[in-house]
Design a protein around this nucleic acid. Sequence first.
DNA 1: CGGAGTCTGTGACCAAGTCACCAAGGATCA
DNA 2: TGATCCTTGGTGACTTGGTCACAGACTCCG
Lengths: 224, 224
Amino acid sequence: MPDTWIDTFPGLTRLPADIRAELEAGSQIVTAPAGAQIFAPGQTADNLLLLLDGTVKVQQKSDTGRDVFLYRVHAGESCVLTTACMLAFEDYAAEGISETDVRAVAIPRKTFDSLVGKSPVFREFVFTAYSRRITDLFTLIDDIVFQRMDVRLAARLLELADDRGVVHATHAALGTELGTAREVISRTLSEFHRRGWVEQSRGEVHLTGKEGLARLVKSAGAHV
Amino acid sequence: MPDTWIDTFPGLTRLPADIRAELEAGSQIVTAPAGAQIFAPGQTADNLLLLLDGTVKVQQKSDTGRDVFLYRVHAGESCVLTTACMLAFEDYAAEGISETDVRAVAIPRKTFDSLVGKSPVFREFVFTAYSRRITDLFTLIDDIVFQRMDVRLAARLLELADDRGVVHATHAALGTELGTAREVISRTLSEFHRRGWVEQSRGEVHLTGKEGLARLVKSAGAHV
DNA sequence: CGGAGTCTGTGACCAAGTCACCAAGGATCA
DNA sequence: TGATCCTTGGTGACTTGGTCACAGACTCCG
């Protein structure tokens, strides 16, 4: 494995040679197409996944049948929250869906446990990833409770836009992402359109006035 | 230390003798009065706390100046989320306030790190505690997004009531717990009163019809 | 007794979620 | 080429919840 994947994760570059060897030998690279269910509630996670390419969205299957979007894992990050359940042999209430074709490193429970035991650097990597996700969850809760919908939508649009300023998502999809109803998204987008910030077409939103959106987000002091 | 505290934590009873010894030697019992700030944002946590007596409430200091209640740590549980930040040398955005006089075991970072490295049982204990808290956070988010306020308030009242069915809390306090406004609590409690479920007096709520509250909670399929 | 501070009640108003229904765009297939 | 169906988006009426302003009422003390 020349040009090892390990170096794409900043937290792992400091690993000593023997640990690197064990990590490389005890893990493998896996792929999945867009839209695949990466992990699901009720099924024990047997691997820690480190994303090399693509994005995975993690959402909670609600009892009420609706989904709550929790967070998005990008290339270079890990689905680390599953590991708690992995090591604790507990079930997970969330599911992960690949949004694009993804490539990831799968570290099986055995290797993971062994490395956590042996390597302080690896431990720090894991716990750092944890604390990131956890503080993310805290700010998510904060946003849900205190932030206005228009601000949250504006922030999310800026985040999801591709390099041409286009967001590929239906109103319903944006609704689940923000934990609100489709109608609310529709109304808010009409308002944004009225202000000349967006143009709409079926299944996509064109950001024509990013400055306006950014100003709205900033004025509310949102956590982008 | 006869009758060691270790056995009050089910996950730790399986620890081998040498690890127990290290844990006992490398930790100490601390106390704090009711209302003390146990940990705060911006100050690195240097100890993992395992609660022996009392309760600690953990809440996020919001940018907007208001607080969001996250969860409550009871005797026999640990403030484990702080450990991620502890090991990762990262700051924490939440603060912990003792609600009663508390007694706890403080495990310093050094001991903690060493034990996580040496003992698979201790690792499992830590990661189990993690996964509990994390899934709790997930259900919290779910509740905030989808559950009606009256149901959430009813559930919380049942949870907070002492053995005589009295909840000692002001409307404002219940408001922060549920991430809503005092006025909403007042209105909802009036409604509960109208239905004969509660009696009110300054600073406390008497549950006179727990069955009604329980029925409301149950009919909504809430996560108690 | 007389403030000062805290706790609760209330009305008006706005933001957001729910429900019901309709219309337009796209796909499929006889 | 239509007929049909599904998905997406638009809209109005209504309910719930959050915000603001202000007024009583209780408690603690000096």
